[in-house]
């Protein structure tokens, strides 16, 4: 029992406060559970449908017909998706890195310019796709400004190469890449580039030997997200791409909306294949990440 009225005062150093907030994992748990439940059940349903276990017509039967019946088209769709995703990711990463470097080099007080540079993130892809279509099509703004007739203008929209699709995705996602890279490197950027400068490094040397290696982990993470998004995006290639071959999401959507209900397994197979490509990319990135972090000197 504590003594009362003993005239003793004790001053102690405040001990560590009991955490009032839940640890991060517990805090995130409700959202994570919801996302896993929705995505997991959706994915399970799609896989089951692709394997004939959830047919709209007929009896359930384990079969790979959804994958094999239209395998040639499916492979073409995979190739088209990989081309679009790879090209978009490479371009977005390069452009994003460039934008990030410029933004980091801006003097204080250039906040509005920073805002404009990354505001592209907020533009919906449908709006971006429509804008790129109006800009690059044969009768679009760009050929008109350049005074080139539609017949002489290359087929950038809906042509044999998914140029407009890649341009839209790269443009939109480059802002996302820039945002991630700036957020990850801003704290150390000025100090490191100034250090490099006083060690005799010119702008190019500072860019290649300091900024780029420092930005690599953030760039890789952002690029993975861009790649996965580009594999799964539907509206941009649907608006700007050609009819055939079509990328996986467009194929999946077309078959899913088909009046032929027996095409549902093929639609699900296209969706499952897209998910598989994304998962493979993520696994590859996770395998490469530790080495990349070590190389970039990230503190574990």
């Amino acid at each position: 029992m504590a003594p009362r009225g003993a005239g003793i005062g004790v001053v102690t150093r405040p001990g560590p406060q009991r955490p009032t907030a839940l640890p991060g994992r517990r805090q995130a748990a409700p959202a994570v559970v919801l996302v896993v439940a929705v995505t997991g059940s959706g994915l399970a349903a799609v896989v089951a449908t692709s394997l004939g276990l959830m047919p709209l017509v007929g009896r359930p039967r384990l079969t790979t017909d959804g994958y094999t019946a239209g395998s040639a088209d499916l492979l073409l769709a995979v190739r088209e998706s990989l081309v679009i995703a790879t090209a978009s990711t490479v371009l977005a990463a390069g452009l994003g890195l460039l934008v990030a470097g410029v933004l980091l080099g801006l003097r204080p007080g250039r906040g509005p310019l920073r805002l404009v540079a990354v505001a592209v993130v907020a533009v919906p892809h449908v709006v971006g796709a429509a804008s790129v279509g109006l800009l690059l099509s044969g009768a679009g703004l760009l050929p008109r400004l350049l005074g080139i007739s539609p017949g002489d203008w290359p087929e950038l929209v809906g042509g044999s190469w998914p140029v407009a699709t890649v341009v839209e995705l790269a443009w939109k996602e480059s802002a996302f890449v820039a945002l991630v890279v700036v957020a990850a490197t801003a704290r150390r950027h000025r100090a490191l580039t100034e250090t490099a400068a006083v060690l005799g490094a010119g702008p190019w040397h500072r860019w290649t030997r300091v900024f780029v290696p420092t930005a690599v982990p953030a760039l890789a993470a952002a690029s993975l997200i861009v790649f996965v998004y580009s594999v799964g995006t539907y509206e941009v290639p649907w608006l700007l791409g050609r009819a055939h071959p079509e990328p996986l999401p467009v194929m999946a959507y077309r078959l899913f909306g088909s009046i032929d209900l027996a095409a549902r397994p093929a639609a699900a197979a296209a969706a499952t294949t897209g998910a598989l490509v994304a998962v493979l990319a993520a696994v590859l990135a996770l395998v490469a990440a530790p080495a990349m972090r070590r190389r970039a000197g990230a503190v574990e």
Partner: peptide, 15 residues
């Protein structure tokens, strides 16, 4: 033609 050593070492972590 000069060089600076700062308060923090600012070593390049990737090297």
């Amino acid at each position: 033609g000069l060089t600076v050593m700062f308060q923090q070492p600012h070593l390049f972590q990737h090297l």
